[in-house]
Structure formats: structure tokens, C-alpha cells
Write a protein that binds this DNA or RNA. Structure first.
Lengths: 178, 178
DNA sequence: GTCTGAAAGTTGACCGTTCAATAACCTACC
DNA sequence: GGTAGGTTATTGAACGGTCAACTTTCAGAC
């Protein structure tokens, strides 16, 4: 009765390309793999939801907005081109436009024309934005520790870093957002 | 210039409760921790987005809907109470209501009154839903393999499972959704 | 029985994201 | 120097999710 778990066929599958080939035999997930995937997807959902809620309640900033502020804070003039900003947080350009528009209304970022490219727009972290980032980061980092870092083995956390380096590598097929 | 990275104070922090105490000294993330967290959050975003897109394009089902179908498929009469369903996928009750309503319109689930509890509603996977699940699961599992499982070390994947078991444990503070 | 408090589920308004279309601009070729 | 094709960013409609209010039902006290 379990579609996802069962491993009906373990047939060779020798040399079949990948997930694109509709004639390929599907290699189902092993029980351990399946467990990992399932707790992963629900765990991530709960974790993000919680971090987002904590930031919103205590600093009136979403997790996505916080991420954007962090990127801006690290850039040369605290400013980053919209497209680069979108790519660096793995959001679509459109989403980034909307988010930055809200942040601008809120006074935590400003938008200025890009000097070197007439099409370009640079998002800049304002002083108010900087203040907000500084205080929000306390909440954020404590949350990340309390709900993730401190509840697991440091070695496992490093493994998590390796996993997502690899995922990032494999998933950087340019042209898949927006 | 980097708020999130710097570790301005490594002061004892002996015995301070947690992320709730506003007077506590914030222990910033180590570079390796910060790197792990950053690639993690963007990697997960990209990964979920991609799996969701593949399911939508090829089977007209979202990742969230697929998760719900999987849970239903494994239950005794392919039916689960709404609240339990919501908890098992870490979504709010409200979200589950809306999602199931759409799925019902689509003919892949049905809603029936719960015999043992007059307040209760059971979501049931229809035959059409079962068919849809079976074919969608091929796409899903291949995607999970291609974009996650097969790109990283098996041992690291197990570590990921352990991490999110712990996260789930720590994060199951009942009453934090809806 | 009925009253009180809690839980299950739904609803509709609001907010954030996606999607497709569009305008503005850059590059390069001729 | 004009035009073709690609890139950047934005826009508004449609969609999905959250939030707070609400209805119905259950369980226990009395």
C-alpha cells in the first residue's frame, strides 16, 4: 500500500541517463533514504516557519527580508544589483522586486539607478535598515542555534554543509528561475 | 561590515537559558557554521522549487499535494483525519483545509465525515488520486535522487537524517501551528 | 440535562509569490 | 547609425498561504 517506500525492482538500471528519461526504471528510495527525506522535508518546513515567525514577531521582518539585508550589508557600498541579489538568495527576480519594493516602503532599503548600466537598479541598505539588521540578527542567530545547530552533532552539521554545497553545485543549471 | 559573521564576543555565556532571553549574550555563528547555514537555506529553497516545478509541469500536482497523497496512501483506508494530516506534513490546519479543498475539486481526494467523532473529517485518496500518485512518484523519486541523494555522500545523507530527527524532536513544541 | 471550556474544521480577508507580458536598455553586427 | 536579439527590471492578475473569527461537536463538572 506504500507507493513511495516499496522497491519493486532493483533491476540493473545500468547506464540510464537520469530523471528526464521517461522509459527509465525508477529506483525507489531505500527505507533509510526515505526516512531521511521525509523528516528532512517536514523538519525544514517547521524550522523555516519558526525562524520566520520569530523574526516577524520581534522585528517585523521576514526571513527572506533578513536574508536580503545580510547580503546587502556585506556588499561594498551596502548595495547590490537586483539580479545578483535575487541569484544570491535563490529567489526569482520578480519576487525580489516585490520584496525590495516592500522593504523600500518600510525605509530599510533604497533603490538607486546603476551608474554603469542604464537598465540596472541597485538596492541599498539604509541606515535604518542597518539598525534593523543588527537587532534582528540576534534573534535570528539565536534561533538558528536553538532550533538547529545546538540540537545536533557538530560533525553532522558539517555534513549538512557538504550536502548543500553539492546540491548547489548540481542545481546551478542557469536559467531555472523566472 | 558583516553582521552575521563576526564573533565579537566569545564570553562564557555560562548557563543562560536560550534564545528567549533578551539580555543573553549572542553567540555568533562560526565561519563553518555560517557557511553551512547559508548554503543550506538557499540550497533548500532551490531544491524545493525545482521538485515542485517538476511535479507541477509533468503531473499537475504540487509538492505539498504530493506529500499529502503519500500520507493518505499509507493509511488504513487511505484516509486520515484532517488534523493528523496537517501535523504529519507540518502544515497549518487552515492550509491543509485549503489544499484538500483544491484536491477535492480536482477529484484526487474526497472528504467524508468521521464516524467516531462528529467534528472530524477524513480525507480519502480516491482511485484517481492513487493513479496520479503512482505516476507522480516516479518523477518525484527521480528528482530527489538526481538533485539530492545521488549528488552527495551516502554517509552525509544519513547525517542529514539524524540532524532532522533532532530538529523534529526539538521543534515539537505542540501548539505552534495555527 | 446543561454549562463551560477546549478541540476540529472551515471561512474570507489579506498578504506574499508566481507567471506572463511589457518597457527600457545594452551589444553587436552590418 | 540602425536594427535584431538578449538582458534587466517591473507590473498586475492569479494563486497559494496565513491569520483571526466562527460553527459545530466533544468531554467533564455539577
Amino acid at each position: 500500500m506504500n507507493v513511495e517506500t516499496t522497491a519493486p525492482a532493483d533491476s540493473a538500471d545500468a547506464g540510464t541517463p537520469a530523471h528526464l528519461d521517461p522509459t527509465a526504471v525508477t529506483r525507489w528510495l531505500e527505507p533509510a533514504e526515505q526516512h531521511a527525506w521525509r523528516t528532512f522535508i517536514t523538519g525544514v518546513t517547521a524550522l523555516f516557519e519558526r525562524l520566520d515567525r520569530e523574526l516577524r514577531e520581534q522585528h517585523d521582518v521576514s526571513l527572506a527580508e533578513h536574508e536580503i539585508m545580510v547580503r546587502l550589508s556585506e556588499a561594498p557600498r551596502r548595495s547590490v544589483r537586483m539580479a545578483e541579489l535575487a541569484a544570491s538568495v535563490s529567489h526569482s527576480r520578480s519576487r525580489t522586486t516585490h520584496t525590495v519594493a516592500r522593504m523600500e516602503r518600510d525605509g530599510i532599503v533604497a533603490r538607486v539607478a546603476c551608474p554603469s548600466d542604464g537598465r540596472g537598479v541597485m538596492a541599498v541598505l539604509t541606515d535604518a535598515g542597518w539598525e534593523r539588521l543588527v537587532s534582528a540578527s540576534h534573534t535570528h542567530v539565536r534561533g538558528v542555534r536553538a532550533h538547529l545547530v545546538d540540537v545536533c552533532d557538530p560533525a553532522d552539521l558539517l555534513a549538512l554543509g557538504r550536502v548543500f554545497d553539492a546540491v548547489h553545485e548540481a542545481n546551478t543549471v542557469p536559467g531555472h528561475l523566472d
